[in-house]
Amino acid sequence: MVFQVFPGGLKRVFPGGLTDSVLKLLASVSRQATVDEIRTWSVTTIDTLNALMDKNNGQWDRDKSMEVILRYLSVPGHSLGTNELNVIGSNLCSLNVSTLQSITTGDLRNSNALDLSSCSYEQKSVLYVTANSSLRAQRNTGPINYHLISPYLGGAPLEDVRALASYNITMDISTFRSLSSPVITSLSVSDVRALMGSAVEDLKVFENDSVVQAWIASQPQSQVDTLNLGLRGGRADPSASPALVTGHTNTSSAPVTGHTNTSSATNNSSAPVTGHTNTSSATNTSSALVTGHTNTSSAPVTGQTNITTNSSSTQSPALSQSAAATVQGSAAALRLAPGVLFIASCVWLLTLT
Results as ranks from 00 to 15, higher is better:
Ser252Asn: 13
Ile149His: 00
Ser188Trp: 14
Asn284Thr: 12
Leu23Tyr: 04
Gly247Ala: 11
Leu116His: 08
Arg177Ser: 10
Leu289Gly: 05
Ser241Ala: 14
Asp209Tyr: 07
Ser120Trp: 12
Thr283Val: 12
Thr291Ala: 12
Leu153Tyr: 01
Asn83Arg: 11
Met171Gln: 05
Thr351Leu: 11
Thr175Glu: 00
Ser181Asp: 15
Gly106Glu: 13
Leu85Tyr: 07
Asn208Leu: 11
Asp36Met: 04
Ser150His: 02
Asn228Ala: 11
Thr226Cys: 03
Lys55Asp: 14
Thr314Phe: 14
Ala240Met: 09
Tyr72Ser: 03
Leu203Gln: 07
Gln59Trp: 08
Arg136His: 11
Asn91Glu: 13
Tyr152His: 01
Ser90Phe: 08
Val301Met: 10
Ser120Tyr: 14
Pro255Asn: 12
Trp348Ser: 11
Ala217Asp: 02
Met1Phe: 10
Thr302Asn: 15
Thr309Leu: 14
Val126Tyr: 01
Gly142His: 04
Ile103Trp: 02
Thr251Gln: 09
Ser330Trp: 06
Arg235Asp: 00
Ser178Cys: 03
Leu127Arg: 01
Tyr146Gln: 02
Thr314Asp: 11
Ile144Asp: 08
Gly8Asn: 09
Glu84Ile: 03
Cys93Glu: 02
Gly197Asn: 03
Asp191Val: 04
Ser253Lys: 07
Pro338Cys: 09
Gly89His: 08
Ser330Ile: 10
Ile46Val: 10
Asp115Tyr: 11
Trp60Val: 00
Val68Ser: 02
Asn112Ile: 06
Gly247Glu: 04
Gln223Gly: 00
Ser98Glu: 15
Ala33Gln: 03
Gln138Ser: 14
Ala113Ile: 12
Gln59Cys: 06
Asn83Gln: 12
His78Phe: 06
Ala332Cys: 09
Thr260Phe: 10
Ile184Val: 15
Gly154Leu: 08
Cys93Val: 04
Val273Cys: 09
Ser298Pro: 03
Val273Phe: 03
Pro242Ala: 08
Ala324Asp: 08
Ser125Leu: 05
Leu231His: 07
Asn261Lys: 09
Asn110Met: 10
Asn132Thr: 04
Cys93Ala: 05
Val224Asp: 00
Gly247Leu: 03
Val43His: 06
Leu334Asn: 04
Asn132Gln: 11
Ala194Phe: 03
His293Phe: 13
Gln321Tyr: 11
Gln32Ser: 09
Leu85Trp: 08
Glu122Asn: 13
Ala199Tyr: 14
Thr45Glu: 01
Ala265Thr: 14
Asn140His: 05
Pro15Ala: 03
Leu289Asp: 08
Ala131Met: 15
Glu37Gln: 15
Ser281Gly: 15
Val290Thr: 04
Cys93Thr: 03
Ala299Leu: 15
Gln4Leu: 05
Leu229Cys: 04
Ala163Phe: 05
Leu229Asn: 01
Arg162Tyr: 01
Thr353Lys: 12
Thr353Arg: 15
Ala333Leu: 14
His259Asp: 01
Asn310Gly: 01
Ser65Asn: 05
His293Leu: 12
Ala265Pro: 15
